[in-house]
């Protein structure tokens, strides 16, 4: 930070000005409008200027009507986030510890899927999970489908159009968002710490649990948020991979807003979603934070 004199004090404001204005106009103002809309009433379907009247009933209405989808979204997103963590952690850990000089290239591989269409990748899962595909036949033969059926996650003898396929799609699509922050936080750890643990006769597992895991918690937190939040609002995976019984809140908002033209209702659902996410994030931060203190 070099010290600047006189007129230079204005420089940072001139630099951030345009960007902040952009985010203000296209992010903050619309959010405020959406909030006002969520408290408004439409006189008819084609009333394009709904009257604002502190109408909290929208919230009650949509919660009553779409509570199931809202709960389902958080359940699906939560399970997908957990799955991303379970799959992504070993990936990031392995790249950091064994990547050597190929580390950067290996992390680059995680981003490669971004260069093909998200939609087409999701559609490709319908090929991979088709009823007679190699994967589904293998799962059928090994009895995994039977187990899933017993647990009640699928009804018939197939994976497509089930919650399992939707959660799988979400897990797949948001996995890079989990791996990248995990990688960043693991990369910062001095690997010699592991040798030190070994010298002090710590087993591999306890070295991981007591040294590596606590140090990587910021990555776990960031990765979970970047996975969980977009996953809750997603409607693409539910549309392509799920059946009518796995519709998520994103599908509802899309339908309410663009098809039913019920903007106040859609706005109320959006804010309900935001509110629950905020609470979930705060609770999560609290849990991870206290864990960090005790270990």
């Amino acid at each position: 930070m070099s010290t600047r004199v006189g007129g230079r004090r204005l420089t940072p404001y001139l630099l951030v000005g345009p960007g902040v204005a952009w985010l203000g106009v296209f992010f903050l103002v619309p959010l405020w409008n959406l909030f006002v809309m969520s408290l408004s009433t439409k006189r008819s379907r084609y009333d394009f200027d709904p009257a604002f009247r502190w109408d909290w009933s929208n919230y009650g209405d949509v919660f009553g009507a779409y509570g199931t989808q809202l709960g389902r979204s958080f359940l699906f997103a939560g399970v997908a986030t957990l799955a991303c963590l379970v799959i992504g952690y070993p990936m990031a850990y392995w790249v950091v510890v064994h990547g050597g000089r190929f580390r950067a290239a290996l992390v680059g591989l995680v981003i490669v899927p971004f260069f093909t269409s998200f939609l087409l990748r999701t559609i490709s899962w319908t090929v991979l999970l088709a009823d007679e595909s190699v994967i589904v036949r293998a799962l059928r033969a090994t009895g995994v489908l039977a187990v899933l059926r017993t647990v009640g996650w699928i009804d018939g003898d197939r994976l497509l159009d089930t919650p399992v396929a939707v959660v799988g799609g979400l897990t797949y699509n948001f996995l890079p968002f989990m791996v990248l922050p995990l990688y960043v936080s693991l990369e910062r750890i001095d690997l010699r710490l592991l040798d030190a643990c070994g010298d002090l006769y710590a087993s591999g597992w306890s070295a991981f649990r007591r040294v590596v895991l606590p140090l990587s918690l910021p990555g776990v937190f960031a990765g979970s948020l970047l996975t969980f939040i977009p996953a809750t609002g997603d409607f693409v995976n539910a549309y392509f991979l799920g059946g009518t019984s796995s519709r998520m809140i994103g599908n509802v908002v899309q339908d309410r807003f663009l098809v039913q033209l019920d903007q106040p209702g859609a706005a109320a659902i959006s804010f309900l979603l935001m509110a629950v996410i905020t609470v979930a994030v705060l609770v999560y931060a609290r849990v991870l934070g206290t864990e960090e203190l005790t270990s």
């Binding site: 394009f48 939040i229 977009p230 994103g250 935001m274 996410i277």
Partner: peptide, 18 residues
């Protein structure tokens, strides 16, 4: 914006332009 679901940003922007 990274911690806001796209569905929320999308609907709010649609409203703004409307």
């Amino acid at each position: 914006p990274l911690t806001t679901p796209e569905i929320v940003m999308g609907s709010s922007l649609a409203l703004l332009f409307l």
